[in-house]
Computed example of a mutant assay.
Amino acid sequence: MPIPSDDDDAALFREAIGPVKPLPESSPAPSKPKPRALARMAERDEQDARSEFQRGLDDLSALAAGDTLSYRRDSVPPAVFQRLKRGRFSAQDELDLHGATLLQAESMLRHFLAEAHAHEFGCVRIIHGKGQRDDGGMPVLKNLVDRVLRQRADILAFHSAPAAQGGTGAALVLLARR
C-alpha cells in the first residue's frame, strides 16, 4: 500500500484507524411525549360550582355589619348549639380573613376547612371582620363566610362568636367528624 502524503489528512486518519465496522440501523429517536390531557370535566364542574355559589349569593339576603351569623343542622341537638353560641367549645384552629379579596378569602376558607377536616378538628374560629365601612357598604367577607359554611356538608353548625372571642366579626364553626 502506498504511503499517503502529508497533504492528505483524511487518508492518514483512515490509515491510523484501520478498517471500520458500520453501526447497525437504529430505530428513530423517540418523539416528544404527548401533552397530558386536560381535566375538562373537573374544570367544568368547578365552573358550575362557582356559578351555583354565585347564584346562592344572589338568592339570599345579605347580612349587615352587626348581624349575627347563626346556622344549625337538624342533626345537632339544641343543647350543643347553645354551647357553641356561648363559646363553650375550644377553637382548635383559627383563620383570619382580614385584608383578603373576595376570591382570596373564598380560596383560603375552603382550604382552611379542608385542612381542619383532615386534622379532624371539632371546632374552629373564622375571623371575617365586621365589615363596618364609612361608605355604608355590606360586609363582603362576612356574607361570604355565611354562604360557604351553609353549603358545606362537613359543617354541623356555626354562630357568631361571643364578644370576648370576636363578637359579630368572627364565627365559631362546629365541624363534622369523619
Rank of each mutant, 00 (worst) to 15 (best):
R83V: 08
F89K: 05
T101V: 12
G87Q: 11
R88G: 06
S107T: 15
G131M: 02
R147I: 13
E120Y: 02
A105W: 04
E120Q: 09
M138T: 11
R86E: 15
P139T: 00
D146K: 11
V145Y: 12
G87A: 08
A116V: 02
G131H: 03
R86P: 05
V140G: 04
K142G: 08
T101S: 15
I126L: 08
M108H: 15
V145K: 06
L97P: 04
D134R: 13
F81Y: 15
L97C: 11
C123L: 03
G122R: 06
R86W: 06
H119V: 01
V145W: 10
R133K: 05
V80H: 12
F89V: 04
H128F: 05
A118R: 10
V80S: 13
A105Q: 08
R86N: 14
T101N: 09
P77M: 11
V80T: 15
P77S: 13
Q92K: 06
Q104W: 12
I127Y: 02
L103V: 15
G122A: 02
I127G: 00
A100M: 14
L95S: 09
V145L: 11
L84G: 07
C123Y: 02
F81R: 11
L113A: 05
Q82H: 14
E106D: 12
R83I: 06
K142W: 06
L97F: 11
R86I: 02
G99F: 11
P77Q: 12
F121H: 12
D135F: 02
G129Y: 00
A91W: 01
R125V: 04
Q132M: 07
G136I: 02
F81G: 11
H117V: 06
H117L: 03
S107K: 14
L113V: 10
K130P: 01
F112E: 03
I127F: 07
